[in-house]
Design a binder for these strands. Structure first.
Lengths: 246, 246
DNA sequence: CATATGCGAATGTCAGGACAATCTCTCGAT
DNA sequence: ATCGAGAGATTGTCCTGACATTCGCATATG
Protein backbone atom coordinates (compact mmCIF):
# COMPACT_ATOMS: atom_id res chain seq x y z
CA UNK A 1 0.00 0.00 0.00
CA UNK A 2 2.99 2.30 -0.23
CA UNK A 3 2.61 5.02 -2.79
CA UNK A 4 3.88 4.44 -6.26
CA UNK A 5 7.25 5.97 -7.03
CA UNK A 6 7.16 8.00 -10.21
CA UNK A 7 10.33 8.20 -12.27
CA UNK A 8 11.33 11.84 -12.60
CA UNK A 9 14.47 13.23 -14.16
CA UNK A 10 15.38 16.78 -13.31
CA UNK A 11 17.85 18.89 -15.20
CA UNK A 12 19.41 21.57 -13.06
CA UNK A 13 20.99 23.26 -16.07
CA UNK A 14 17.70 23.75 -17.84
CA UNK A 15 16.20 27.24 -17.81
CA UNK A 16 12.87 25.63 -16.89
CA UNK A 17 12.30 25.95 -13.14
CA UNK A 18 12.71 22.77 -11.16
CA UNK A 19 9.20 22.92 -9.74
CA UNK A 20 7.80 23.08 -13.23
CA UNK A 21 9.90 20.20 -14.52
CA UNK A 22 8.61 18.23 -11.58
CA UNK A 23 5.00 19.20 -12.08
CA UNK A 24 5.10 18.40 -15.80
CA UNK A 25 6.43 14.91 -15.28
CA UNK A 26 4.12 14.13 -12.40
CA UNK A 27 1.18 15.42 -14.42
CA UNK A 28 2.24 13.16 -17.28
CA UNK A 29 2.21 10.21 -14.89
CA UNK A 30 -1.44 10.93 -14.20
CA UNK A 31 -2.55 11.47 -17.77
CA UNK A 32 -0.63 8.34 -18.76
CA UNK A 33 -2.75 6.39 -16.35
CA UNK A 34 0.35 5.45 -14.39
CA UNK A 35 -1.45 7.01 -11.43
CA UNK A 36 -5.18 6.46 -11.11
CA UNK A 37 -7.76 8.66 -9.38
CA UNK A 38 -7.72 7.94 -5.68
CA UNK A 39 -4.18 6.60 -5.71
CA UNK A 40 -1.97 7.81 -2.88
CA UNK A 41 0.83 10.16 -3.81
CA UNK A 42 4.36 10.05 -2.50
CA UNK A 43 4.63 12.47 0.41
CA UNK A 44 6.43 15.77 0.10
CA UNK A 45 9.51 15.07 2.17
CA UNK A 46 10.10 11.61 0.69
CA UNK A 47 9.74 12.97 -2.82
CA UNK A 48 12.15 15.76 -2.04
CA UNK A 49 14.72 13.43 -0.54
CA UNK A 50 14.46 10.94 -3.37
CA UNK A 51 14.88 13.58 -6.07
CA UNK A 52 17.37 15.69 -4.15
CA UNK A 53 15.30 18.85 -4.23
CA UNK A 54 14.11 20.95 -1.33
CA UNK A 55 10.67 20.65 0.16
CA UNK A 56 9.52 24.12 -0.99
CA UNK A 57 10.30 23.11 -4.55
CA UNK A 58 8.30 19.91 -4.22
CA UNK A 59 5.48 21.81 -2.56
CA UNK A 60 5.35 24.30 -5.36
CA UNK A 61 5.18 21.56 -7.98
CA UNK A 62 2.40 19.83 -6.09
CA UNK A 63 0.59 23.12 -5.62
CA UNK A 64 0.60 23.64 -9.37
CA UNK A 65 -1.13 20.31 -9.78
CA UNK A 66 -3.57 20.97 -6.97
CA UNK A 67 -4.49 24.25 -8.66
CA UNK A 68 -5.30 22.29 -11.80
CA UNK A 69 -7.50 19.93 -9.87
CA UNK A 70 -5.22 16.94 -10.38
CA UNK A 71 -4.36 16.34 -6.75
CA UNK A 72 -6.12 16.59 -3.43
CA UNK A 73 -4.08 17.47 -0.35
CA UNK A 74 -5.26 16.90 3.19
CA UNK A 75 -3.24 17.86 6.20
CA UNK A 76 -2.34 14.92 8.34
CA UNK A 77 -3.50 12.47 5.73
CA UNK A 78 -1.49 12.98 2.60
CA UNK A 79 -1.92 13.70 -1.06
CA UNK A 80 -4.01 11.70 -3.50
CA UNK A 81 -4.88 11.80 -7.15
CA UNK A 82 -8.19 13.58 -7.58
CA UNK A 83 -11.39 12.30 -9.01
CA UNK A 84 -11.15 12.46 -12.79
CA UNK A 85 -14.30 14.56 -13.05
CA UNK A 86 -12.63 17.54 -11.50
CA UNK A 87 -9.52 17.45 -13.66
CA UNK A 88 -9.33 20.71 -15.48
CA UNK A 89 -9.14 20.26 -19.21
CA UNK A 90 -8.32 23.74 -20.33
CA UNK A 91 -8.99 27.26 -19.28
CA UNK A 92 -8.33 29.71 -22.01
CA UNK A 93 -8.33 28.29 -25.47
CA UNK A 94 -9.69 29.25 -28.80
CA UNK A 95 -12.23 27.52 -30.95
CA UNK A 96 -9.55 26.70 -33.52
CA UNK A 97 -7.34 24.98 -30.96
CA UNK A 98 -10.25 22.98 -29.67
CA UNK A 99 -11.34 21.77 -33.08
CA UNK A 100 -7.80 20.87 -34.00
CA UNK A 101 -7.33 18.88 -30.82
CA UNK A 102 -10.48 16.93 -31.59
CA UNK A 103 -9.32 16.40 -35.15
CA UNK A 104 -12.38 17.98 -36.73
CA UNK A 105 -10.60 19.67 -39.63
CA UNK A 106 -11.06 23.33 -38.75
CA UNK A 107 -11.18 25.85 -41.58
CA UNK A 108 -11.42 29.61 -41.78
CA UNK A 109 -13.13 31.94 -44.24
CA UNK A 110 -12.07 35.56 -43.79
CA UNK A 111 -15.00 37.82 -44.61
CA UNK A 112 -13.48 41.12 -43.58
CA UNK A 113 -10.15 42.56 -42.54
CA UNK A 114 -9.97 46.30 -42.21
CA UNK A 115 -9.06 49.14 -39.92
CA UNK A 116 -11.99 50.75 -38.18
CA UNK A 117 -12.90 52.98 -35.27
CA UNK A 118 -15.33 51.27 -32.92
CA UNK A 119 -16.19 52.79 -29.60
CA UNK A 120 -17.58 49.64 -28.01
CA UNK A 121 -14.51 47.55 -28.83
CA UNK A 122 -12.10 50.30 -27.85
CA UNK A 123 -13.81 50.74 -24.52
CA UNK A 124 -13.74 47.00 -23.88
CA UNK A 125 -10.02 47.03 -24.54
CA UNK A 126 -9.60 50.04 -22.31
CA UNK A 127 -8.25 52.16 -25.15
CA UNK A 128 -9.26 55.68 -26.24
CA UNK A 129 -12.53 55.60 -28.18
CA UNK A 130 -10.91 56.83 -31.40
CA UNK A 131 -8.08 54.29 -31.47
CA UNK A 132 -7.94 52.66 -34.91
CA UNK A 133 -8.54 48.95 -34.50
CA UNK A 134 -8.10 46.03 -36.85
CA UNK A 135 -11.52 44.52 -37.38
CA UNK A 136 -11.67 40.91 -38.50
CA UNK A 137 -14.74 38.89 -39.38
CA UNK A 138 -14.34 35.18 -39.99
CA UNK A 139 -16.53 32.15 -40.48
CA UNK A 140 -15.18 29.11 -38.70
CA UNK A 141 -15.95 25.74 -40.24
CA UNK A 142 -15.45 22.19 -39.03
CA UNK A 143 -15.44 19.35 -41.51
CA UNK A 144 -16.73 21.78 -44.10
CA UNK A 145 -19.80 22.97 -42.19
CA UNK A 146 -20.03 26.49 -40.78
CA UNK A 147 -19.92 26.52 -37.01
CA UNK A 148 -19.40 30.10 -35.90
CA UNK A 149 -19.02 33.70 -36.95
CA UNK A 150 -16.12 35.38 -35.21
CA UNK A 151 -15.80 39.14 -35.09
CA UNK A 152 -12.60 40.39 -33.45
CA UNK A 153 -11.01 43.74 -32.87
CA UNK A 154 -7.27 44.08 -32.27
CA UNK A 155 -5.23 47.02 -30.99
CA UNK A 156 -2.90 48.84 -33.45
CA UNK A 157 0.11 46.83 -32.31
CA UNK A 158 -1.22 43.82 -34.19
CA UNK A 159 -2.56 45.64 -37.22
CA UNK A 160 -0.14 43.77 -39.47
CA UNK A 161 -1.74 40.38 -39.04
CA UNK A 162 -2.56 39.16 -42.51
CA UNK A 163 -5.39 37.22 -44.04
CA UNK A 164 -2.97 34.36 -44.57
CA UNK A 165 -2.05 34.24 -40.89
CA UNK A 166 -5.71 33.91 -40.03
CA UNK A 167 -6.51 31.32 -42.67
CA UNK A 168 -3.57 29.13 -41.91
CA UNK A 169 -3.40 29.07 -38.15
CA UNK A 170 -6.17 30.89 -36.33
CA UNK A 171 -6.06 34.16 -34.46
CA UNK A 172 -4.72 32.96 -31.15
CA UNK A 173 -1.95 30.95 -32.76
CA UNK A 174 -0.97 34.01 -34.80
CA UNK A 175 -0.89 36.12 -31.66
CA UNK A 176 1.17 33.52 -29.84
CA UNK A 177 3.62 33.41 -32.73
CA UNK A 178 4.10 37.13 -32.19
CA UNK A 179 5.02 36.47 -28.59
CA UNK A 180 1.68 37.64 -27.34
CA UNK A 181 0.06 35.33 -24.85
CA UNK A 182 -3.44 35.91 -23.50
CA UNK A 183 -3.42 35.18 -19.80
CA UNK A 184 -6.67 36.51 -18.50
CA UNK A 185 -9.98 37.10 -20.24
CA UNK A 186 -13.40 38.37 -19.29
CA UNK A 187 -16.18 36.60 -21.08
CA UNK A 188 -19.88 37.10 -21.31
CA UNK A 189 -22.08 34.33 -22.70
CA UNK A 190 -25.66 34.62 -23.88
CA UNK A 191 -28.20 33.40 -26.41
CA UNK A 192 -30.43 35.12 -28.96
CA UNK A 193 -32.16 34.77 -32.30
CA UNK A 194 -29.76 34.98 -35.23
CA UNK A 195 -29.76 37.93 -37.63
CA UNK A 196 -30.55 37.22 -41.29
CA UNK A 197 -26.83 37.50 -42.14
CA UNK A 198 -25.96 35.02 -39.43
CA UNK A 199 -28.68 32.65 -40.59
CA UNK A 200 -27.20 32.69 -44.06
CA UNK A 201 -23.58 32.20 -43.11
CA UNK A 202 -24.25 29.57 -40.48
CA UNK A 203 -26.96 27.85 -42.58
CA UNK A 204 -29.42 28.03 -39.73
CA UNK A 205 -32.86 26.56 -40.35
CA UNK A 206 -36.12 27.19 -38.56
CA UNK A 207 -35.99 28.99 -35.25
CA UNK A 208 -32.70 27.65 -33.95
CA UNK A 209 -30.94 30.20 -31.76
CA UNK A 210 -27.26 31.17 -31.64
CA UNK A 211 -24.99 31.05 -28.64
CA UNK A 212 -23.07 34.29 -28.25
CA UNK A 213 -19.87 35.13 -26.47
CA UNK A 214 -17.98 38.37 -26.09
CA UNK A 215 -14.46 38.27 -24.80
CA UNK A 216 -11.86 40.77 -23.69
CA UNK A 217 -8.41 39.22 -23.46
CA UNK A 218 -5.34 40.64 -21.76
CA UNK A 219 -1.73 39.59 -21.45
CA UNK A 220 0.22 39.02 -18.26
CA UNK A 221 0.90 42.75 -17.95
CA UNK A 222 -2.74 43.66 -18.29
CA UNK A 223 -2.34 45.03 -21.83
CA UNK A 224 -5.32 44.54 -24.10
CA UNK A 225 -4.88 41.86 -26.71
CA UNK A 226 -8.23 41.32 -28.30
CA UNK A 227 -11.95 42.01 -28.13
CA UNK A 228 -14.16 39.37 -29.67
CA UNK A 229 -17.87 39.10 -30.40
CA UNK A 230 -18.66 35.57 -31.48
CA UNK A 231 -21.78 33.66 -32.31
CA UNK A 232 -22.07 29.91 -32.60
CA UNK A 233 -24.57 27.45 -34.05
CA UNK A 234 -26.24 26.21 -30.89
CA UNK A 235 -26.90 22.72 -32.28
CA UNK A 236 -23.20 22.05 -32.67
CA UNK A 237 -21.51 23.92 -29.92
CA UNK A 238 -21.36 24.30 -26.17
CA UNK A 239 -18.89 26.24 -24.10
CA UNK A 240 -17.25 24.03 -21.50
CA UNK A 241 -15.20 25.38 -18.67
CA UNK A 242 -13.94 24.82 -15.19
CA UNK A 243 -14.43 27.43 -12.55
CA UNK A 244 -12.74 27.30 -9.23
CA UNK A 245 -12.31 29.25 -6.10
CA UNK A 246 -8.99 29.33 -4.39
CA UNK B 1 7.17 58.87 -7.18
CA UNK B 2 7.77 56.53 -4.28
CA UNK B 3 5.02 53.97 -3.81
CA UNK B 4 2.24 54.61 -1.40
CA UNK B 5 2.62 52.95 1.98
CA UNK B 6 -0.49 51.02 2.94
CA UNK B 7 -1.32 50.73 6.62
CA UNK B 8 -1.46 47.06 7.55
CA UNK B 9 -1.90 45.55 10.98
CA UNK B 10 -0.94 41.94 11.41
CA UNK B 11 -1.95 39.76 14.32
CA UNK B 12 0.47 36.95 14.91
CA UNK B 13 -1.86 35.26 17.40
CA UNK B 14 -4.69 35.00 14.92
CA UNK B 15 -5.37 31.59 13.40
CA UNK B 16 -5.60 33.34 10.03
CA UNK B 17 -2.31 32.93 8.16
CA UNK B 18 -0.16 36.02 7.95
CA UNK B 19 -0.09 36.00 4.16
CA UNK B 20 -3.84 36.03 4.07
CA UNK B 21 -4.17 38.83 6.59
CA UNK B 22 -1.78 40.76 4.43
CA UNK B 23 -3.56 39.99 1.18
CA UNK B 24 -6.95 40.94 2.60
CA UNK B 25 -5.83 44.32 3.79
CA UNK B 26 -3.91 45.13 0.64
CA UNK B 27 -6.89 44.05 -1.44
CA UNK B 28 -9.08 46.34 0.63
CA UNK B 29 -6.72 49.21 -0.14
CA UNK B 30 -7.38 48.65 -3.82
CA UNK B 31 -11.14 48.30 -3.62
CA UNK B 32 -11.24 51.35 -1.36
CA UNK B 33 -9.62 53.32 -4.12
CA UNK B 34 -6.67 54.04 -1.88
CA UNK B 35 -4.60 52.49 -4.64
CA UNK B 36 -5.56 53.22 -8.23
CA UNK B 37 -4.96 51.09 -11.34
CA UNK B 38 -1.44 51.70 -12.57
CA UNK B 39 -0.15 52.84 -9.19
CA UNK B 40 3.19 51.40 -8.16
CA UNK B 41 3.16 48.95 -5.29
CA UNK B 42 5.64 48.84 -2.46
CA UNK B 43 8.33 46.31 -3.29
CA UNK B 44 8.51 42.95 -1.61
CA UNK B 45 11.56 43.43 0.56
CA UNK B 46 10.55 46.89 1.76
CA UNK B 47 7.06 45.67 2.60
CA UNK B 48 8.51 42.75 4.49
CA UNK B 49 10.91 44.90 6.45
CA UNK B 50 8.29 47.50 7.28
CA UNK B 51 5.78 44.94 8.54
CA UNK B 52 8.35 42.65 10.12
CA UNK B 53 7.41 39.61 8.10
CA UNK B 54 9.61 37.49 5.89
CA UNK B 55 9.81 37.90 2.18
CA UNK B 56 8.17 34.53 1.34
CA UNK B 57 5.15 35.61 3.38
CA UNK B 58 4.93 38.88 1.49
CA UNK B 59 5.40 37.08 -1.79
CA UNK B 60 2.61 34.68 -1.03
CA UNK B 61 0.23 37.52 -0.18
CA UNK B 62 1.12 39.32 -3.38
CA UNK B 63 0.78 36.11 -5.36
CA UNK B 64 -2.75 35.70 -4.06
CA UNK B 65 -3.59 39.13 -5.40
CA UNK B 66 -1.84 38.51 -8.71
CA UNK B 67 -3.90 35.34 -9.08
CA UNK B 68 -7.03 37.42 -8.67
CA UNK B 69 -5.89 39.85 -11.31
CA UNK B 70 -5.44 42.72 -8.90
CA UNK B 71 -1.70 43.17 -9.33
CA UNK B 72 0.78 42.89 -12.15
CA UNK B 73 4.31 41.80 -11.35
CA UNK B 74 7.24 42.32 -13.67
CA UNK B 75 10.68 41.10 -12.88
CA UNK B 76 13.17 43.88 -12.73
CA UNK B 77 10.48 46.51 -12.74
CA UNK B 78 8.23 45.99 -9.79
CA UNK B 79 4.61 45.45 -8.94
CA UNK B 80 1.69 47.66 -9.99
CA UNK B 81 -2.04 47.72 -9.52
CA UNK B 82 -3.68 46.13 -12.56
CA UNK B 83 -6.01 47.67 -15.03
CA UNK B 84 -9.50 47.62 -13.58
CA UNK B 85 -10.88 45.72 -16.57
CA UNK B 86 -9.02 42.61 -15.58
CA UNK B 87 -10.01 42.63 -11.94
CA UNK B 88 -11.80 39.41 -11.28
CA UNK B 89 -15.23 39.93 -9.84
CA UNK B 90 -16.10 36.45 -8.76
CA UNK B 91 -15.59 32.95 -9.91
CA UNK B 92 -17.99 30.51 -8.50
CA UNK B 93 -21.26 31.92 -7.33
CA UNK B 94 -24.90 31.19 -7.71
CA UNK B 95 -27.66 33.06 -9.45
CA UNK B 96 -29.25 33.87 -6.13
CA UNK B 97 -26.11 35.48 -4.78
CA UNK B 98 -25.69 37.51 -7.92
CA UNK B 99 -29.23 38.82 -7.90
CA UNK B 100 -29.01 39.65 -4.25
CA UNK B 101 -25.77 41.55 -4.73
CA UNK B 102 -27.37 43.56 -7.49
CA UNK B 103 -30.39 44.15 -5.28
CA UNK B 104 -32.88 42.67 -7.74
CA UNK B 105 -35.11 41.00 -5.16
CA UNK B 106 -34.58 37.32 -5.93
CA UNK B 107 -37.38 34.88 -5.20
CA UNK B 108 -37.80 31.15 -5.42
CA UNK B 109 -40.72 28.94 -6.32
CA UNK B 110 -40.09 25.28 -5.51
CA UNK B 111 -41.84 23.10 -8.08
CA UNK B 112 -40.46 19.77 -7.00
CA UNK B 113 -38.48 18.22 -4.18
CA UNK B 114 -38.22 14.46 -4.16
CA UNK B 115 -35.83 11.57 -4.04
CA UNK B 116 -35.12 9.98 -7.38
CA UNK B 117 -32.69 7.72 -9.18
CA UNK B 118 -31.16 9.44 -12.20
CA UNK B 119 -28.32 7.87 -14.06
CA UNK B 120 -27.16 11.02 -15.84
CA UNK B 121 -26.93 13.05 -12.64
CA UNK B 122 -25.31 10.24 -10.70
CA UNK B 123 -22.70 9.76 -13.38
CA UNK B 124 -21.97 13.49 -13.45
CA UNK B 125 -21.43 13.39 -9.70
CA UNK B 126 -19.29 10.29 -10.06
CA UNK B 127 -21.62 8.23 -7.90
CA UNK B 128 -23.05 4.75 -8.57
CA UNK B 129 -25.93 4.94 -11.07
CA UNK B 130 -28.50 3.73 -8.55
CA UNK B 131 -27.61 6.22 -5.81
CA UNK B 132 -30.79 7.92 -4.57
CA UNK B 133 -30.51 11.64 -5.23
CA UNK B 134 -32.52 14.60 -4.04
CA UNK B 135 -34.05 16.18 -7.12
CA UNK B 136 -35.07 19.81 -6.85
CA UNK B 137 -36.80 21.93 -9.46
CA UNK B 138 -37.16 25.64 -8.83
CA UNK B 139 -38.20 28.73 -10.71
CA UNK B 140 -36.02 31.69 -9.91
CA UNK B 141 -37.60 35.10 -10.10
CA UNK B 142 -36.15 38.58 -9.97
CA UNK B 143 -38.37 41.51 -9.13
CA UNK B 144 -41.33 39.20 -9.57
CA UNK B 145 -40.54 38.03 -13.11
CA UNK B 146 -39.40 34.49 -13.82
CA UNK B 147 -35.78 34.36 -14.89
CA UNK B 148 -34.67 30.76 -14.82
CA UNK B 149 -35.68 27.16 -14.21
CA UNK B 150 -33.17 25.39 -12.02
CA UNK B 151 -33.07 21.63 -11.79
CA UNK B 152 -30.55 20.27 -9.28
CA UNK B 153 -29.58 16.88 -7.99
CA UNK B 154 -27.86 16.44 -4.63
CA UNK B 155 -26.10 13.42 -3.13
CA UNK B 156 -27.77 11.60 -0.18
CA UNK B 157 -25.68 13.52 2.35
CA UNK B 158 -27.81 16.59 1.71
CA UNK B 159 -31.16 14.85 1.35
CA UNK B 160 -32.51 16.69 4.36
CA UNK B 161 -32.50 20.13 2.76
CA UNK B 162 -36.03 21.44 3.06
CA UNK B 163 -38.30 23.48 0.86
CA UNK B 164 -37.99 26.28 3.37
CA UNK B 165 -34.19 26.31 3.12
CA UNK B 166 -34.51 26.70 -0.62
CA UNK B 167 -37.20 29.35 -0.52
CA UNK B 168 -35.48 31.48 2.04
CA UNK B 169 -31.87 31.48 0.99
CA UNK B 170 -31.06 29.66 -2.21
CA UNK B 171 -29.31 26.37 -2.69
CA UNK B 172 -25.71 27.46 -2.39
CA UNK B 173 -26.36 29.43 0.77
CA UNK B 174 -28.08 26.39 2.28
CA UNK B 175 -25.12 24.22 1.36
CA UNK B 176 -22.70 26.74 2.81
CA UNK B 177 -24.70 26.82 6.03
CA UNK B 178 -24.12 23.08 6.26
CA UNK B 179 -20.38 23.63 6.02
CA UNK B 180 -20.25 22.54 2.43
CA UNK B 181 -18.28 24.81 0.15
CA UNK B 182 -18.10 24.27 -3.61
CA UNK B 183 -14.56 24.91 -4.73
CA UNK B 184 -14.37 23.61 -8.25
CA UNK B 185 -17.06 23.14 -10.86
CA UNK B 186 -17.28 21.97 -14.42
CA UNK B 187 -19.78 23.87 -16.49
CA UNK B 188 -21.17 23.46 -19.95
CA UNK B 189 -23.10 26.30 -21.55
CA UNK B 190 -25.33 26.15 -24.59
CA UNK B 191 -28.49 27.50 -26.18
CA UNK B 192 -31.65 25.90 -27.53
CA UNK B 193 -35.36 26.36 -28.14
CA UNK B 194 -37.41 26.13 -24.94
CA UNK B 195 -39.76 23.26 -24.25
CA UNK B 196 -43.47 24.06 -23.85
CA UNK B 197 -43.15 23.70 -20.07
CA UNK B 198 -40.23 26.10 -20.01
CA UNK B 199 -42.10 28.56 -22.21
CA UNK B 200 -44.95 28.55 -19.72
CA UNK B 201 -42.90 28.93 -16.57
CA UNK B 202 -40.54 31.51 -17.98
CA UNK B 203 -43.32 33.33 -19.88
CA UNK B 204 -41.37 33.17 -23.11
CA UNK B 205 -43.00 34.73 -26.15
CA UNK B 206 -42.29 34.17 -29.82
CA UNK B 207 -39.17 32.30 -30.78
CA UNK B 208 -36.88 33.52 -28.01
CA UNK B 209 -34.32 30.88 -27.05
CA UNK B 210 -33.11 29.80 -23.63
CA UNK B 211 -29.55 29.79 -22.40
CA UNK B 212 -28.67 26.50 -20.75
CA UNK B 213 -26.02 25.54 -18.28
CA UNK B 214 -25.16 22.26 -16.65
CA UNK B 215 -22.84 22.25 -13.71
CA UNK B 216 -21.05 19.65 -11.62
CA UNK B 217 -19.72 21.09 -8.38
CA UNK B 218 -17.19 19.54 -6.03
CA UNK B 219 -15.70 20.48 -2.69
CA UNK B 220 -12.04 20.91 -1.87
CA UNK B 221 -11.61 17.19 -1.39
CA UNK B 222 -13.17 16.34 -4.73
CA UNK B 223 -16.44 15.09 -3.21
CA UNK B 224 -19.53 15.72 -5.32
CA UNK B 225 -21.77 18.47 -4.05
CA UNK B 226 -24.31 19.14 -6.73
CA UNK B 227 -25.32 18.52 -10.33
CA UNK B 228 -27.42 21.21 -11.93
CA UNK B 229 -29.25 21.59 -15.22
CA UNK B 230 -30.42 25.16 -15.58
CA UNK B 231 -32.11 27.18 -18.25
CA UNK B 232 -32.38 30.95 -18.38
CA UNK B 233 -34.47 33.51 -20.25
CA UNK B 234 -31.94 34.72 -22.78
CA UNK B 235 -33.35 38.24 -22.92
CA UNK B 236 -32.58 38.84 -19.28
CA UNK B 237 -29.48 36.88 -18.56
CA UNK B 238 -25.89 36.39 -19.58
CA UNK B 239 -23.20 34.36 -17.90
CA UNK B 240 -20.16 36.47 -17.10
CA UNK B 241 -16.87 35.00 -16.06
CA UNK B 242 -13.16 35.43 -15.97
CA UNK B 243 -10.89 32.76 -17.36
CA UNK B 244 -7.21 32.73 -16.78
CA UNK B 245 -4.19 30.68 -17.49
CA UNK B 246 -1.40 30.47 -14.99
C1' DC C 1 24.56 61.97 -31.80
C1' DA C 2 23.78 57.21 -31.51
C1' DT C 3 25.04 53.11 -29.49
C1' DA C 4 27.02 50.15 -25.80
C1' DT C 5 28.09 49.15 -21.29
C1' DG C 6 27.32 48.71 -16.67
C1' DC C 7 24.89 49.44 -12.36
C1' DG C 8 21.06 49.35 -9.23
C1' DA C 9 16.56 47.72 -8.24
C1' DA C 10 13.17 44.49 -8.29
C1' DT C 11 11.26 40.00 -8.82
C1' DG C 12 12.22 34.75 -9.64
C1' DT C 13 14.17 30.49 -7.94
C1' DC C 14 15.99 27.38 -4.55
C1' DA C 15 17.77 25.59 -0.14
C1' DG C 16 17.25 24.13 4.62
C1' DG C 17 15.19 24.33 8.98
C1' DA C 18 11.70 24.83 12.68
C1' DC C 19 7.37 24.39 14.60
C1' DA C 20 2.12 23.96 14.31
C1' DA C 21 -2.08 21.67 13.07
C1' DT C 22 -4.58 17.76 11.81
C1' DC C 23 -5.59 13.15 10.67
C1' DT C 24 -5.18 7.91 11.40
C1' DC C 25 -4.15 4.17 14.00
C1' DT C 26 -2.68 1.64 17.90
C1' DC C 27 -2.51 0.62 22.57
C1' DG C 28 -4.10 0.75 27.06
C1' DA C 29 -7.47 1.49 30.70
C1' DT C 30 -12.00 0.81 32.17
C1' DA D 1 -15.51 -4.94 24.15
C1' DT D 2 -15.47 0.02 24.01
C1' DC D 3 -13.78 4.29 24.44
C1' DG D 4 -10.09 7.62 25.02
C1' DA D 5 -5.32 9.16 25.00
C1' DG D 6 -1.25 9.41 22.71
C1' DA D 7 2.17 8.47 19.08
C1' DG D 8 3.40 8.90 14.36
C1' DA D 9 2.82 10.64 9.85
C1' DT D 10 1.84 14.34 6.78
C1' DT D 11 0.78 18.76 5.27
C1' DG D 12 0.55 24.00 6.58
C1' DT D 13 2.97 28.08 7.93
C1' DC D 14 6.92 30.90 8.57
C1' DC D 15 11.72 32.17 8.82
C1' DT D 16 16.55 33.22 7.04
C1' DG D 17 19.69 33.27 3.47
C1' DA D 18 21.67 33.11 -1.15
C1' DC D 19 22.06 33.66 -5.95
C1' DA D 20 19.97 34.33 -10.76
C1' DT D 21 17.44 37.00 -14.06
C1' DT D 22 15.48 40.87 -16.01
C1' DC D 23 14.46 45.64 -16.63
C1' DG D 24 15.20 50.73 -16.78
C1' DC D 25 18.33 54.27 -16.62
C1' DA D 26 22.51 56.74 -16.37
C1' DT D 27 26.94 56.92 -18.02
C1' DA D 28 30.64 56.09 -21.04
C1' DT D 29 32.26 55.34 -25.72
C1' DG D 30 32.63 55.33 -30.70
Amino acid sequence: MSPQLIAVSIDRDSPIPLYHQLARQLTAAISDGQLQPGDPFENEVALGTRLQVSRPTVRRAIQEMVDQGLLIRRRGLGTRVANRKVHRKFELSSLYDELEREDRRPGTLVLERETVVNERAASALDLPATTPLLSIVRVRTAEGSPLAILHNWLPPAHADITREDLEQTGLYAALRARGCRPVVARQSIGARKPTPTERKHLRIHGTQPVLTMTRMAFDSEGKAIEFGDHCYRSEDYTIDLMVDER
